[in-house]
Design a protein around this nucleic acid. Structure first.
Lengths: 187, 187
DNA sequence: ATGTTCGTACAGAATTTATTTTACAAACTG
DNA sequence: CAGTTTGTAAAATAAATTCTGTACGAACAT
């Protein structure tokens, strides 16, 4: 009755196993600030061993080509996907960045790095302003409040200094000196 | 013409400086998966040196008390805010967790930790499934595909093992052995 | 040129997420 | 006990995000 051969069923089972992984990726990719549907796109590309075109993605996910275009772009932004070229192929081709360490580190240097830089700047400015106010303050209560705020901002700046060092340790790979990669068979 | 004393203007200037910081926090708190308006709530509490009630928050932000209730809850979830008590006060009181290192580390052990655990489990299951398929596979092309997928999943599992170690180094504070806190005047 | 194909900008539709309003249960007050 | 106050659930509304369809310019092909 079954119209499929044994081997065909195995291919189907492989699809099921892949689907399990894709679902897991899609569920948690929001940590990278990417919508789940685009996580699914990433997962699909992850198992697709050839570079994919926007049309192929559109077919594979049943979504519009426009969505694939913007989706791929956001994956490119966080370097989870790369553009490739191939002789005589006119369409844009994309492959996933398979090294998940790199993706993780890049997330930090981009999203977190930008936030750190911005907040550090703003907090420094605020600190400056508060120091200026302190110069002119006479009211004792005001002066106390200003001191408390300064202490907070100094703590915050220290924290950002530390975070920057962490991000740098990611970027340079120095973090592996402290937390080595689990050695696979082939170091 | 100005109805304010010099000192009153200084208080206003302080508000401006604080507003600068609050805005910076609100802008970037999405990295913690929290909406910007609730980041503003956090910032407000950060500078409010006394514990706050939901009604005070509501007044301070011009938002509904219900929003404050759910907002505070999400900040509690990620341990950026704590509940406190005070003799003879009936209302719930909340203060911010001022140690930003702790907040950062907690983000990892909660949000990232949960994601790691989930993905690791699903990927292990998928790997198992694929190994089972491999046993039954005869088609050479299928077998090659299965091998490639297995290699990918093994790499992924290694990555998660490493990530777990990183999270643990955060949780235990061991990370400071590698990246020491910038020493303030008072160690 | 002329006609295709390809990628994306843009405007609107669909969906999801945030916020408020209303309502109510639990804990207190007198 | 009747009357408040407090926090939150649930439903309704508002706002933001994601997705789609159309349209168009750029690159290529003939």
């Amino acid at each position: 009755m079954s119209g499929q051969s044994n081997q065909e069923k195995l291919w189907e089972k492989l699809e099921e196993a892949r689907e399990r992984v894709i679902r897991a990726i899609a569920t948690n990719i929001d940590l990278y600030g990417v919508p789940s549907s685009i996580g699914r796109l990433y997962g699909t590309m992850y198992f697709h061993d050839e570079p994919m075109t926007l049309d192929e993605m559109s077919d594979a996910l049943g979504m519009s080509k426009t969505s694939m275009s913007t989706g791929v772009r956001s994956l490119l932004d966080i370097k989870m996907v790369q553009k490739t070229y191939r002789k005589g192929v006119r369409k844009d081709l994309y492959i996933v960045e398979e090294d998940w360490y790199q993706s993780f580190f890049h997330l930090f240097s981009s999203k977190w790095g930008r936030a750190i830089q911005h907040n550090e700047k703003e907090i420094s400015l605020a600190k400056q302003q508060i120091e200026d106010i302190y110069q002119q303050a006479e009211d004792e209560e005001l002066k106390e409040t200003l001191s408390r705020d300064l202490a907070k901002l100094e703590h915050a700046l220290e924290y950002y200094t530390w975070l920057k060092k962490l991000v740098k340790a990611f970027e340079t790979g120095e973090i592996f000196e402290f937390i080595p990669k689990p050695s696979s068979r082939n170091p």
